[in-house]
Every structure is written in C-alpha cells, then in structure tokens.
C-alpha cells in the first residue's frame, strides 16, 4: 500500500475522487503516515490478542437507556419542530442516483 495504484484502489473503495495530478503526492504522504504507523510493529508486548478489541467504551446499565415512548427525545414544541429541506426532492421522496 502506497503505490499510486494502491491509492487509486483505495479511493474507489472509499468513494473518493482524487485528481490524477494529486495521486503521486497523496501516495507519498500516505506512505509517510504508514511509516509513522509502522512504529507499532515495535510494540510487541507479549500478553495481547489481536483478535479482540480492547477499546475504552464505558459500560452502562440497560436501565439507563431510553424508554420506548414517543416524544421521549424530540419534545413536541413548536420551536423544535424538525424542518429539514433535502437537497433534491420529488413528492416527498429524496432524489438519489441510479443504483
């Protein structure tokens, strides 16, 4: 990863367009950052398992969660009425590209 072809492929997967003249620079900078990331290769402390995710999410009790009631989140007051105008719409539908 870091050749121009790699970058193009990754752009495709990430649904990004990078102009041709920027591909080379992008590839170079991506390579630099991966160089920084490869620092972690030196981190070889014995007792960890890369097949688990040991993230720092907090834990909450199920009782702390929202009850299944209407208007529990969006209090029905005039000021807070949800007024959203989509970019392109037709008869209430939002217009999307072909699939």
């Amino acid at each position: 990863m870091s050749t121009e072809d790699d970058v193009k492929k990754l752009c495709d997967l990430s649904k990004l367009e990078i102009p041709d003249e920027m591909i080379m620079e992008t590839a170079k900078k991506v390579k630099d950052v991966l160089g920084l990331f490869s620092k972690l290769d030196e981190f070889t402390n014995s007792d960890f398992d890369l097949n688990t995710v040991n993230d720092l999410r907090i834990e909450k009790s199920i009782d702390s969660l929202r009850a299944d009631t209407l208007f529990s989140v969006h209090v029905d007051n005039k000021d807070n009425k949800f007024d959203f105008k989509p970019l392109n719409s037709k008869n209430g539908f939002i217009i999307g590209p072909r699939i």
Partner: peptide
C-alpha cells in the same frame, strides 16, 4: 444526482473534501 450511477455520484460528490481529509479517510 440525476443521471449518475450511485458509485460515481458518491465519488464525484466526495471529491470536495480537502486533501488532508481525503488522506485521513483513505488511511
């Protein structure tokens, strides 16, 4: 989006991210 296939529409639309943002998305 009219006339676009969704993949090309997404890629075209998202081309307006700045270069740093694009690199972070790719990485």
């Amino acid at each position: 989006p009219e006339g676009y296939d969704w993949r090309s529409y997404f890629a075209k639309s998202r081309s307006l991210f700045g270069d740093e943002v694009k690199r972070r998305i790719l990485l």
